[in-house]
């Protein structure tokens, strides 16, 4: 997911070859895939690089809130599952960084952009995971929202991104189901456990809806992104779908969605729901999320404190190469 246009580069009027541009637009309109060595407009390359790298950063930073609970998982079964889930997210980050690199930005540049605070990642990961139920809520809601966003991206126009999304989508379903199962079990437990599940839903519901990004009327790049097939549905369309499938899942385990305005609208065949606090969303985008600073510190510390591993591997590779040359 996480394709919420968190960062907009100013439109540059690139002088493109009109013939190549027309051929490109026609290919994309015909649902053809664009591959790394193909000609593409600079704005397409730039938008995709930003979108894919933001997506990659989100997978990587997304390991932190859950990693927080690996050592405290309530059973060995839960611990093994959570470990596998977090490892999957690392894999998602790697698939996506590789896809972004094919557009000409190096891995190092992307990592540096993340660590310097220049690059954005999904706002959802700047909220804290204070109880075990949060791990259930994240799997169910956050991975659920991610699936909603990622499924249409399997048909995105850029081949390496589409292929990465196919792999990611295959793995996400387990993430969502293990989260829902955690919530289900808590709801079948003591009243205190059930209260914990409800509390987690209360805190994660709105931030999950924000994951789909600003409302369509404040999402000026949407039309272009839809035309270029780097987005296949609008933010509001995806958000509506998410609400429609998630509300019954909450009801089925006796949880109530924390939105007094929520009600079924027969005529549109979907739920009407309350106004999202966009002030909060934009504040988190600006880096004012409750644990934004901790997240970035954890990332930078991991990178810097483990530099010796990378250096040792480099030294070993150089030594072996030298020996081979001498032989």
């Amino acid at each position: 997911m996480y394709t919420t246009e968190l960062q907009k580069t100013k439109a540059v009027d690139a002088i493109e070859d009109p013939e190549k541009l027309a051929a490109f637009e026609a290919r994309v309109a015909a649902d053809d895939f664009i591959e790394p060595k193909d000609w593409m407009p600079e704005a397409y390359r730039r938008t995709l690089t930003r979108q894919i790298s933001q997506h990659a950063h989100s997978e990587i930073v997304g390991m932190l809130p859950e990693g927080n609970w690996i050592g405290r998982a309530p059973s060995l079964r839960r611990k093994a599952i959570l470990l596998a889930k977090v490892q999957d997210e690392a894999g998602h980050g790697l698939y996506l960084y590789s896809a972004a690199e094919t557009l000409g930005t190096s891995r190092g540049q992307m990592i540096e952009a993340l660590h310097s605070g220049k690059a954005k990642y999904s706002t959802i990961f700047n909220y804290p995971t204070v109880t075990w139920a949060d791990i259930g809520a994240i799997g169910w809601l956050v991975d659920g929202a991610a699936i909603m966003n990622q499924v249409p991206l399997q048909r995105t126009s850029y081949g390496p991104y589409a292929r990465a999304m196919v792999r990611v989508c295959k793995e996400e379903s387990f993430h969502q189901r293990q989260g829902y199962e955690i919530m289900m079990h808590l709801c079948q437990g003591t009243s205190e456990q059930k209260r914990m599940a409800q509390d987690a839903l209360n805190r994660w519901w709105w931030p999950s809806l924000m994951m789909f990004g600003p409302p369509d009327e404040n999402s000026p790049n949407t039309a272009q992104s839809l035309r270029w097939r780097i987005k296949r549905e609008t933010n509001d369309e995806l958000r509506q779908k998410f609400v429609d499938i998630t509300v019954p899942q909450a009801e089925a385990i006796g949880l109530s969605v924390p939105d007094p305005a929520l009600h079924w609208n027969e005529s549109k065949g979907g739920y009407d729901f309350g106004e999202i606090d966009w002030e909060e969303f934009y504040a988190v985008v600006r880096g004012e999320g409750p644990v934004a600073k901790e997240r970035m510190k954890a990332r930078r510390d991991a990178w810097e404190k483990n530099a010796w591993v990378r250096e040792a591997a480099d030294a070993y590779a150089a030594k072996k190469a030298q020996k081979k040359q001498a032989a």
Partner: peptide, 12 residues
């Protein structure tokens, strides 16, 4: 072909 990885040498 399934994708790519960065590594200092073939073994890694």
């Amino acid at each position: 072909h399934v994708g790519s990885v960065h590594a200092p040498d073939a073994e890694i």
